[in-house]
Nucleic acid binder design. Sequence first.
RNA 1: UCCUGAGUAGCUCAGCCGGUUAGAGCAUCUGACUGUUAAUCAGAGGGUCGCUGGUUCGAGCCCAGCCUCAGGAGCCA
Length: 492
Amino acid sequence: MYFCRSNFIIMSQRIKIKALLESEQTDIQVLVKGWVRTFRNNQFIALNDGSTNGNLQVVVDFENTDPALLKRITTGAAISASGTLVASLGKGQKVELKASAIEVLGDCDPETYPIQPKKHSLEFLRENAHLRFRTNTFGAIFRVRNSLAFAIHQFFQERGFVYLHTPIITASDAEGAGETFHVTNFDLANPPKDDTGAVDFKEDFFGRPTNLTVSGQLEGELGAMALSDIYTFGPTFRAENSNTTRHLAEFWMIEPEMAFYDLNDNMDLAEALLKYVIKYALEKNVEDIEFLTQRLLDEEKQKPQQDRSEMTLIEKLQFCLNNDFERLTYTEAIDILKESTPNKKKKFQYPVEGWGTDLQSEHERYLVEKHFKKPVILTDYPKQIKAFYMRQNETDMNGNETVRAMDILFPGIGEIVGGSQREERLDKLEQRMDEMGIPKEELWWYLDTRRFGACPHAGFGLGFERLVLFVTGMGNIRDVIPFPRFPKNAEF
RNA sequence: UCCUGAGUAGCUCAGCCGGUUAGAGCAUCUGACUGUUAAUCAGAGGGUCGCUGGUUCGAGCCCAGCCUCAGGAGCCA
């Protein structure tokens, strides 16, 4: 960080390895600190400090170094090294540090340290999630995740959106977005009961049943009805017993809500956001994405030819930037699927027959990966399979009832964004809530926005981990969040 | 939750039809070498075969239940 143009370095200041590796200067005195990746030949330390995927080679003058100190330079040990940055005498790196002093800051017993200088499976590293940051793969993933998070804020801030913090604890379970985690202060072995023998939540902390939020959308809409454009970016919780590579019990979601937006504006914004943040990561995390691209190539070498992707990770990301997402209605998608080869040859597990049922993931995958071969935005889904707050379309000439919904489908991920134009007409909204059995009394505050100065508006939810999954090319969502929460697992 | 597969050394795995002392590679340790890049070479240590029960003269292997993991499905973001 203290890299001055004048070749002058403050020796007492530690320099991050990323800055050193990018440096054009040599023959300067520097101080570095980091963790040993490998120690080869009693001479060469591959040192990493997390600032970049690359290691700095620290060369030790082993003949003039205390053997007891050399023994303590083990994989995983934290060390401090100072010396001269010189052009490397060996191949494989431009510069290296000729060490004049080395201090072991934290020893690391190689007999018991789980991370060995060898390849580890992702499953093993998941069980050692507290240490997996120290691997190349997870270093790259979490630096990319960081960039994406920053880019999301930057995108919205540049457009005048207000970052709104919606509550984590809520009393409404009305949205029906999934099973909730209960929040209570009760002694679960002995909760207070009322006259009928039911648990008496009047005695609980909030005086009513509460749960962790499944979505900040409804509260987000309240903000949009005054601030015009808001976004949330926070954790959400679903107690679904989902055991897949695409679901977590705790995940982060970005939920913008925009007043005076219709569905087209909504789609434009979502597409622009995705392209913006992918572009940002591609530019900001060049080495990380190159590393992850190579990692994916190596992984795919183990698969049979037909299961390998046609594009590398970088190519996929660039392809995403350079092409408009395909936009079509649910009804058009059903027509395509009905006429598709796999449907005619009965290759689908769930044959596509009529209008009105939800698409299975095999159908979404066909549209995205085989038919269009690019991200797809599906709109105007049947009203019966979508949430109560979505704006109802006029019944079409075939008598089909649809809502102004949109889902963005990504290759390998499936649904990454789900959104809609919201129903701003009070009578329509109330009627739909009645039909779906949603308690209007509980959502009186939500309905107030339709009573007082209602206006057309829209919004969407973007699953952050699914985005990270796509940009890193990883296959399991549990590998793109630092400490995954899923059924039967809350370690760390 | 359902379907399929898996659980054997620190890690990744092999282990035949149920039969003597359970193997390999990597990692670790010891020694050699000393401009290495997954260093190399020689040697050594390392096991409650997921758990519980059952069948059998005998179980890593067969059976039942449970636990955990992976992949797929559903729910979804």
